[in-house]
Simulated scan of single mutants.
Amino acid sequence: MTTRSRLLVLFAAVSLLAVLAGTAVLRAADRAAEKDRVQEGGPSVGSGPVSLTAGGERRIAFRNMAWGPHRDELTTVPADRPDGPRTASGVSCLRFHAAAGTGVCLQSGGRAAVLDASLKEVSAHRLAGLPTRARVSPGGHLAAWTVFVGGDSYAGTDFSTRTSVLDLRTGRLVASLEEFTVLRDGREYRAADVNFWGVTFTPDERGFYATLATGGRTHLVRGDLAAGTVTTLRENVECPSLSPDGTRLVFKKRVPGLPAEAPWRLHALDLASGRETPLAETRSVDDQVVWTDAHTVAYALPGDFGADLYTVPADGSGAPRRLMSSALAPAFLGPR
């Protein structure tokens, strides 16, 4: 091989290496960009530190539903900029709630993870089915979760649920509220078809409200954790959520004449008077609402990428408005 030929081969090899190196750099850049890519027109999502204590700034923590590498991760945004850039934690949750620096994260693989303020796992518990509801008490000392153990929709009748309550102060786990004694019309009630879901804790963290289903009907119940009892209060109440002052419940109610696949309307119940008020949201809401403050509730409705969050006044006035897209299971952190 002549010197000229050797130089041509060397030049070709160097050129090929340069092309390969450039391609590698471009691919690395693409991969880096992919880490923070979301669906077109969606929110900006990037990795960063996430805390369940908001400090002086009020924040919203939620399950991010935006398509991209951070989908399903526990994510936060400032409460006054819900459409702003999102900070993703790397912790994935199917259902989530938090209060007073304690979080409960229901995960794929059948785990309920209790998290501290820095998202460190404090304890983990086995789930018996598909996660559907999660709640933390106002003081952060109690956690509850509900799973489906058969069926996949409250709109049907062929399903069963299991609701657990964990006391973080003692470590006591009530694996199923079906262990509690049911009091109905002043008498102990027993039935094979009893199901519970949708726990919401009282401000004193001694009791709770929830839904009990039996005999094809749903009932609002008040639970006493120390006594291990639940007492039925009224019918046709599902997924109650107690106001911060403990005086009102917002819940979903089946309304006669609505389609079987979309049977609910949100209502508020004044616990002292028993008066019910329909809220301004006229769409069927299959969710347990969260109080954003003393006057407003937030909830999820189906969206283009799984779910979007909306708010509506809790007194029946006003109109619903979109809070943020591609989000689910919010918790409002910091001062109300």
Score class of each variant (00 low, 15 high):
T2P: 05
L8F: 09
L10P: 00
L17C: 11
L17H: 01
A18L: 10
R31G: 04
A32N: 11
A33Y: 01
E40A: 14
P43Q: 11
G48Y: 03
G48W: 04
P49D: 14
V50R: 09
S51T: 15
T53R: 10
T53H: 01
R58P: 10
I60Y: 04
M65W: 02
A66N: 06
R71E: 12
G84R: 08
S89I: 05
V91Q: 12
S92H: 02
S92Y: 00
C93F: 03
L94N: 02
F96W: 03
A99R: 13
T102D: 09
A113P: 00
V114W: 11
L119T: 06
E121I: 14
S123L: 09
A128R: 13
A128P: 00
A128E: 11
G129Y: 05
G129V: 10
R135P: 00
S137N: 05
H141D: 14
T146L: 02
S153R: 14
T157Q: 11
T157E: 14
D158M: 07
R162D: 13
T163V: 03
S164W: 00
L168S: 06
L168M: 06
G171H: 10
R172L: 08
A175Y: 00
S176P: 01
L177D: 09
V182M: 11
L183P: 00
R184F: 13
R190T: 12
A192N: 07
F196I: 05
G198H: 06
T200W: 04
F201S: 08
D204F: 03
D204G: 08
F208K: 04
A210S: 15
L212I: 06
T214M: 02
T214A: 13
T218E: 11
V221M: 03
R222E: 15
G223Y: 01
V230P: 05
T231D: 03
T232M: 06
L233D: 04
E235C: 04
V237Q: 10
C239F: 08
L242E: 04
L249M: 03
K252Y: 01
K253H: 09
V255Y: 08
P256H: 09
L258F: 05
E261R: 15
A262G: 04
P263D: 13
P263M: 13
A272F: 01
S273T: 15
G274F: 02
R275L: 11
T282C: 00
R283V: 01
S284T: 09
V285M: 07
V289D: 01
V290K: 12
T296R: 15
V297I: 14
Y299H: 03
A307Y: 14
A307F: 12
Y310Q: 01
T311M: 07
P320Q: 12
P320W: 12
P320R: 12
P320T: 10
L323D: 10
L328Q: 11
A329F: 12
A329N: 13
P330Q: 10
F332I: 15
